[in-house]
Write a protein that binds this DNA or RNA. Structure first.
Lengths: 207, 207, 207, 207
DNA sequence: GATGAATGAGGGTTCATTCAT
DNA sequence: TATGAATGAACCCTCATTCAT
């Protein structure tokens, strides 16, 4: 087998795994690990159940893999963001990116929140990393407080609150559309939402 | 059958239905409608699956009944709160109650959020009522703006944002405990959380 | 307890048993012994399943009782018919009564045919009587043949054939209405059907 | 996979479906759609219930498929029969074939009659075709009447009557054997029965 | 790599019946 | 008599997974 063909095969497989993962995230977002059926995932990915099981070791493995993928994507999302630029600049960028991503890929937020709601049984492995990130962010926030750039707040709760505000529009997209009088398939206005959230947070933090 | 005995029977049944509903909410919170098994609900309620099915028409009926119950409980929760008292007083009370309830009964928030994440297929029936409430609240908020009690904001998004902040600690209780360095079964500090959220919102709304 | 009251109670019970039997025949006609549910019978009789079971020893007993009742009713139906009156007079009367009863009470014929189709597992007990009747009728038919009132035929098959012709319109009432262009709830014309059947048989038997 | 193997697989499946259908017809004949259990069908087909369900979408689908099959088989049965050959020739052939088939495959007639007795809820779809056939046959019969080949009769009822006579020996095989003094597993004499029925009908139709 | 076949466990629900009151 | 409660067995069907080809 030539190197090119082998590369082709690998790429083909990679692409297939991407399709499967996307289908899995969509289904896990709707029904969780227990509630999702491999049949539904296979249907969504456009393949037979048997073929799906050829590519994955088990439903649970697929679930964990999807979680890992989500964590990576979110880490990537904030690469290049600079907390040293000060609270205003950082939070504006962060919230904007986070809200936009949440609105564009609601299944991702939903699957993740589902896992967390269940007590995060499969997320514990990743949390040591998250804890480090949280600690690091807390230090920066405390520096901002020390420099009187923002008023004194609980730095961990601040992070949770921002997380809450930005995730919410992914989880509650249907309800939001309804209450805002939008059509069932109309996109939410990410810019407007990001602006309102940003303003609330920045003003809420003023010294 | 004497009136007393009949009363006893009715009370017994009422109590049993409460047990069942609580078990159901816990399971639906974990696994959604599809993922939850009547066996698990029965186990949690301390009865056989057959006996459970004697008391409910179907799993879906139980699910809808639980949702209805949640909506009622939340409506009750805010009876007596007075929006005419001005933003500071109202928001302080509202957020306090909401956060405390979320932290005390996280399964309730979780089941509800799960339903909403799935596109709220069974909640649509209740939303006309919710829309009215949202509209009414929006009017009050706009009056506050007109009276310069708060700065101009999108009144609907403000409601969503407050909702997001107060629900979050129910959904993410496990994660929050972990990041805050608490024990796995330690209660979250509702007072502290409510204070931080309230402060963020009130200051974020200052004219 | 006075005799009158006791009589009342007995009458009440008798009436109730009639209601139950009618409901049972309707359900057994539709679904057979296995397929019929006591719940459906109870519903049809306007009582709770528990109460139904108070009045009957078991579903199977109810089934057998209904069969016995049907056999009795059919026996009564032909009391007074006189085979000595000769074939024309007898067959005219017999077919007329049988067709009319079949069309008026199709459930009865249907439940009975269902039992027979299943191999008549509960009817065997009654068949010794039936065999006697069949033999007796065969003798009369053979006398008719000997007297040249009708042509030579197999006397048992003749009885079966007449039975087939008269039962058919109970079993196939729906189909008959459809093919005859009648409304779904329109009654079949018993007189017309009886005439056609009678004519076919009488002419078919001419020496 | 080679063409030969694929053909093998298809043939294997076809054969299996035939086995399943035969088992299904036997069970549906005994207990109807509601009363028949997939377990009993599986047992009769010599496979596990799970395996049976691998081959059928649902019990109801199997039921409808079996009905469709029966209708097709009966249509095939009368291919080649020529109504233009005149009443005597046609009716002799028709009754002979029909009686023989009924006696050889009583379950088929029984399942069909069961469906019709229940009001034919799943047969309605096929009845438009049947109605056409009935109409066409009626026209031929009326031509026979006009040509004085048979006496005037209701053409639709004539068809029903013949149907009744020929089906009867499938439905009442057990009873017939008993009344004719045959052993429980002895075959009915199709030739004799067909002759008696034919004679009754042909003579009954003489002008 | 990819397909059809197969399976044991479990899914929600209904069953005829019994029990206590 | 008559009711509500309760139950073990059975109902139809789907599950994630494995096997053979």
């Amino acid at each position: 087998m030539s190197r090119a063909v082998r590369g082709d095969l690998a790429a083909r497989r990679e692409e297939l795994m991407g399709t499967i993962r996307a289908a899995a995230i969509a289904e896990f977002a709707l029904n969780g690990l227990n509630g999702a059926s491999t049949q539904a995932i296979a249907d969504r990915a456009g393949m037979s159940k048997t073929r799906l099981h050829y590519y994955i070791p088990s439903k649970q493995d697929l679930y964990v893999d999807a979680l890992r993928h989500i964590v990576e994507v979110w880490a990537d999302l904030f690469h290049g963001l600079d907390m040293t630029a000060g609270p205003e600049r950082f939070l504006r960028d962060y919230i904007e990116r986070k809200v936009r991503h949440a609105i564009d890929h609601p299944e991702v937020s939903r699957m993740f929140t589902g896992e967390v709601m269940r007590g995060a049984p499969f997320l514990h492995d990743f949390w040591d990393t998250s804890r480090e990130a949280t600690r690091h962010a807390s230090e920066v926030i405390e520096r901002w407080i020390a420099e009187d750039l923002i008023r004194p707040v609980d730095p961990v709760l601040l992070q949770f609150n921002i997380w809450a505000l930005t995730q919410h529009y992914a989880l509650h997209a249907t309800e939001a559309r309804f209450m805002l009088g939008l059509a069932e398939d109309a996109p939410l206005d990410a810019t407007h939402i990001a602006d309102e959230v940003t303003e609330l947070v920045l003003r809420g933090l003023r010294p």
